[in-house]
């Protein structure tokens, strides 16, 4: 297990009694969750359990109807000014990469820093090259996303988020759309990122990653947080029956 020296007690995300509905469907039920700076949290659960919706609420890609979400001491409301400041502090990596296909890899990485953070173009490009080097694909900078493999695209997506110099990174099933031989390169990138002390919330089914990196594992089912524990206890000693069933299903195949 990767020991976390960067974990602190300073809370960066606080969710209190948050509820969300899609129409009449109650998708998130009474969610309360605190995340400290540098903490790495893995969220797992069966499909439809609301785990993606939960992390999408944190940067307001989904709007919650009840309860509070406070990110970096700013409460998420409909206020656009708050929203922009939160979004430039919270990076997100998607299951389907969502790179901009009409821009080169480098342009993908520099677009938001130049226009949202008003960084000079030269500085943005330097930063982008530095981060592309960190995810080990600087040589692809001038190619278009369509010319890269899935694993490379996802690493570009990670670099693109990091170019905004976020304080928190959200990962929404980052390896689910990848071929098996490419999963490792993306997970390795994420492990390296964890070593730098980044606060990370990761929705994933990669239990090996959870065991290795997570400070805390959350199990969700039917819109509720069923169980939260450190990885050792979570995997060896699950308390809830639904957690046991889920773990037996994904670990014993």
């Amino acid at each position: 297990m990767l020991k976390n020296k960067n974990k602190s007690t300073k809370p960066v995300i606080q969710i209190r009694e948050m509820h969300k509905w899609f129409g009449n469907f109650h998708v998130l039920k009474n969610i309360s969750l605190g995340v400290n700076q540098g903490e790495r949290i893995v969220i797992c659960g069966p499909s439809g359990s609301g785990k993606s919706t939960l992390i999408r609420c944190i940067n307001r890609l989904e709007v919650h109807q009840q309860g509070d979400i406070i990110v970096n001491n700013v409460e998420l409301t409909g206020d656009l000014k708050n929203l922009e400041s939160i979004r430039s502090d919270v990076g997100m990596v998607f299951q389907s990469f969502n790179l901009f296909p009409h821009l080169t890899v480098l342009e993908n990485c520099t677009l938001a820093p130049i226009w949202v953070k008003k960084l000079p173009k030269k500085d943005a490009e330097e930063l982008a090259m530095e981060l592309l080097t960190r995810v080990k694909i600087p040589e692809q900078a001038l190619k278009y996303p369509g010319q890269l493999s899935g694993g490379q695209q996802q690493r570009v997506a990670i670099a693109r988020s990091l170019c905004m110099q976020p304080k928190i990174m959200l990962f929404d099933e980052p390896t689910s759309a990848l071929d098996p031989e490419m999963i490792k390169e993306v997970l390795d990138t994420m492990i390296e990122l964890a070593e730098t002390g980044m606060t990370m919330l990761v929705v994933t089914h990669e239990m090996g990653f959870a065991k290795k990196v997570a400070d805390s594992v959350i199990f969700m089912d039917e819109g509720e947080i069923i169980e939260q524990n450190d990885p050792k206890n979570f995997f060896n000693n699950p308390k809830n029956d639904r957690t046991k069933l889920f773990l037996s299903q994904i670990l014993n195949h």
Binding site: N59, L61, E84, R87, S88, V90, G91, M92, F94, N98, L99, F100, L111, A112, W115, V116, A157, R160, S161, M164
Partner: peptide
């Protein structure tokens, strides 16, 4: 969503 997440 990607553009939103980048704060655009």
């Amino acid at each position: 969503e990607a553009a939103d997440a980048l704060g655009m």
